[in-house]
Computed example of a mutant assay.
Amino acid sequence: MGWLFLALAIVLELSGTVSMKLSDSFSRWVPSVLMFVFYGASFTCLNFALGYMKVSTVYAIWSGIGIVLISLVGGFVFQEKLSLPSILWIGMIVIGVIGLNMSGKGG
């Protein structure tokens, strides 16, 4: 059940971040309101996930996958370019999340 809450938290956080971009610095009210709704729901699901899993695992996965997904959305949807060093550092984050979970100390 913890993994389900974590997956929902990730999808909702991604939706909140996309809404933030679409809000155009709060100049568009619908995406601005949606941003708060999505982030509130994301943190709620994150809180429920913490009832089943360790905080280090939950937060590392939530933030790491969120970074990867929003980078992909930024590139494909908003045509934002990532430099090679940025891609490599994002890769390091992914490796860190995997390492944390494999170490047994984080999960």
Rank of each mutant, 00 (worst) to 15 (best):
M1V: 15
G2F: 08
L4M: 08
L4C: 02
L4F: 11
L4V: 10
L6V: 12
A7D: 03
A7L: 10
L8Y: 10
L8E: 05
A9C: 12
I10T: 08
V11Q: 04
V11Y: 06
L12N: 04
L12A: 08
E13S: 13
E13V: 00
S15R: 03
S15L: 14
S15V: 07
G16H: 13
T17N: 06
T17R: 08
M20W: 02
K21Y: 11
L22K: 14
L22W: 12
L22V: 06
L22I: 09
S23G: 05
S23W: 03
D24P: 03
S25R: 13
S25T: 09
F26A: 15
S27G: 08
S27C: 15
R28E: 10
W29I: 15
V30C: 06
P31L: 11
P31T: 07
S32C: 12
S32E: 04
S32Q: 04
L34Q: 09
L34E: 02
L34V: 05
L34P: 04
M35D: 00
F36D: 10
F36Y: 15
V37R: 13
F38I: 10
F38T: 07
G40C: 05
G40V: 03
G40W: 08
S42W: 04
S42H: 08
F43D: 07
T44H: 07
T44V: 05
C45Q: 02
C45T: 06
C45M: 12
C45W: 00
L46D: 06
N47E: 01
N47Y: 13
F48Y: 09
F48K: 10
F48T: 04
A49D: 00
G51W: 12
G51N: 15
G51Y: 12
G51Q: 12
M53F: 03
M53Q: 07
V55H: 01
V55T: 04
S56N: 13
T57I: 09
T57N: 01
V58F: 00
V58C: 06
Y59R: 14
Y59K: 06
A60M: 11
A60C: 03
I61D: 00
W62T: 04
S63M: 12
S63F: 11
G66N: 01
G66T: 05
G66C: 09
I67G: 11
L69P: 01
I70H: 12
I70V: 14
I70N: 05
I70T: 15
S71Q: 11
S71K: 13
L72Y: 02
L72W: 02
G74I: 07
G74T: 05
G75Q: 04
F78W: 10
E80P: 04
K81P: 02
L82G: 05
L82T: 05
S83K: 14
L84R: 00
L84M: 05
P85A: 06
S86G: 10
S86V: 05
S86K: 08
I87F: 09
L88D: 08
L88R: 07
G91F: 10
G91Q: 07
M92E: 00
I93W: 01
V94D: 00
V94R: 01
V94W: 00
G96I: 05
V97T: 07
I98N: 00
G99A: 13
G99W: 05
L100S: 13
L100R: 06
N101T: 10
M102R: 15
S103V: 14
G104S: 11
G104F: 01
K105Q: 12
K105S: 12
G106C: 03
G106S: 09
